[in-house]
Design a binder for these strands. Structure first.
Lengths: 316, 316
DNA sequence: CATCTGATG
DNA sequence: CATCAGATG
């Protein structure tokens, strides 16, 4: 008997919850859940194959994806892990895991990938993670500045030829209570952190930067000038970062393309109406510009209020 | 695609949640939900007909039901309102509505019934309600003692020939932090309150009294002597109440029947194993003993961690 | 184990 | 309109 129909932007997914009267042990249930998670799929039938190359005709040898998954446990319940298998990136960075490392389900591990996690002291808040096929030379957590490093917002993975940094940048909050911290402290210290890395090896930084840079980067620029993510301060912070010698890979490739977003609020059917924001980025050291093949926004992949973004690089 | 199977004692009910991509207005959704609530049923195919009479052969003319519904909004989602239609009592008392009066859904109203609500100041906590076919002469809320009346725990409905009192008695809590309040203050003042009414008209008091009176009233008396609901103090409180001239209608009729409970914790499949407690009662003024026809425990009605109890009376 | 709220986005 | 936590039972 059908009891309730909820709406939700995750239109491809149905959840069939049945209350089994069986007397199952906790281990049995965990096993059943793990099995169902394996079977569940967010990406069923999706084709992620994509042909691209650098300007000088070199094919990509690295595929890096980034996704704010809005709660790794909920995301796994929806079949999020299927994305990794189907996208098959060399690296997947996730943000907003909302889960202490100790509480991560066992089946968070994916065959063929090393995984690295950073979580906030506040339970169920923020948090980032990296899946990587290649084992990084070194992995570090945070910026090395105590006031910034309580919320699991940054992981840096060092590879032979580059640094990969993933970040979940602090949201300024409703009514902008955290805007001063965000723009005067975080943005400055994060920029310095990236610059220090950039002196050693080129940097690929990705994640939910919680800013729509230009008017083209959100559906309603006029009405959001005082909304977190589109204040002058936050936008200037991003401009200042790029000015230090970085590029916004998507905008570099598609300077005029409108209506491409990576986040839509769950409220008011924003995603169906494409009332969104581009908050997720790949920011590359300028010297990597020549190696850039493409940046794809997987707007049809559901499972979060953000969608994944994918970077194709032909690294030397 | 099946994503997850949860277990839950409500084995008769399936919840089919689909995320519709439709762009529906809030009013549309509320309407759809109301419709689904109407269609949903907890009591589908259940037969509540029951023949009984007083010792001197009189047939019942009042049917009164009581149920701790553990959240009226969740209960309605599961089709709780179907119980009222199918049981068709003259009066239904509910406890643990967990809903401020202002937040009650519109469809909480049931045709043919007057309804009365009392809610706690603390949102989502405790709360009681009464559905009544006959409009009571008068309805009052609480005990008239401020310290007891912040939690919506008592409603008194006065009828021509009796008082009906429904109560959700304070739980002593894990580790018994509230046992002193419960036994030294509440139990005493509630007893006095009932005695004052009893001087005027006979009293029918019902609800979740949060006590299993005797060893026979719970599955595991030995291991629960220090658990809220079976402490010496709480049991003595009930004994003291009865000593003032009241009867426990179920135990009056079935003094030796074992294994009848009205509550089973959701944990560990307690209900399937019938590891329960009798916490819900009808307590009657002694002079109503002669009018008592039966007291039925609807142990198969799901939808809460308590089940409904039903009193049949042949009132003069 | 299931109900709520409240913080957060 | 989602996530998760924490209180309560």
């Amino acid at each position: 008997k059908i009891l309730l129909i909820y709406s939700n932007p995750v239109s491809r997914i149905k959840r069939f919850l049945t209350w089994s009267p069986a007397k199952k042990s906790k281990a049995d249930k965990t096993e059943a859940k793990t099995k169902l998670r394996k079977e569940a799929s967010l990406t069923d039938g999706m084709d992620f194959s994509h042909d691209c190359q650098t300007k000088d005709g070199r094919k990509p040898n690295w595929k890096i994806a980034s996704w704010n998954i809005n709660g790794i446990r909920a995301w796994m319940d929806k079949g999020g892990l299927s994305y990794i298998k189907d996208e098959n990136p060399d690296i997947l960075c996730v943000q907003e895991t909302k889960c202490a490392e100790a509480d991560l389900p066992d089946d968070v591990k994916v065959e063929g990938y090393h995984d690295y996690w950073s979580s906030a002291e506040q339970a169920g808040y923020a948090g980032t993670g990296i899946y990587s096929k290649t084992k990084p030379v070194n992995v570090t957590y945070g910026l090395g500045i105590k006031k910034h490093d309580q919320e699991g917002r940054v992981i840096t993975a060092e590879y032979d030829n580059f640094y990969l940094v993933t970040s979940y940048v602090p949201n300024s909050g409703r009514g902008l209570p955290r805007l001063p911290y965000r723009s005067k402290q975080w943005d400055v210290d994060f920029r310095n952190y990236l610059n220090d890395l950039n002196k050693k090896k080129p940097v690929i930084m990705c994640g939910d930067l919680n800013v729509a840079h230009l008017e083209i980067d959100l559906a309603n620029p006029k009405t959001n000038k005082k909304t977190a993510g589109f204040t002058v301060e936050e936008r200037q912070g991003f401009t200042d970062l790029l000015a230090e010698g970085y590029i916004d890979s998507y905008r570099e490739l598609y300077p005029e393309t409108e209506g491409t977003y990576t986040f839509w609020t769950y409220m008011g059917n924003a995603r169906a109406k494409n009332v969104g924001w581009r908050l997720d980025y790949f920011v590359l050291s300028e010297k990597l510009k020549e190696d850039l093949c493409d940046n794809v926004i997987r707007k049809d992949v559901m499972g979060s209020d953000h969608c994944p973004i994918v970077l194709y690089m032909a690294m030397k």
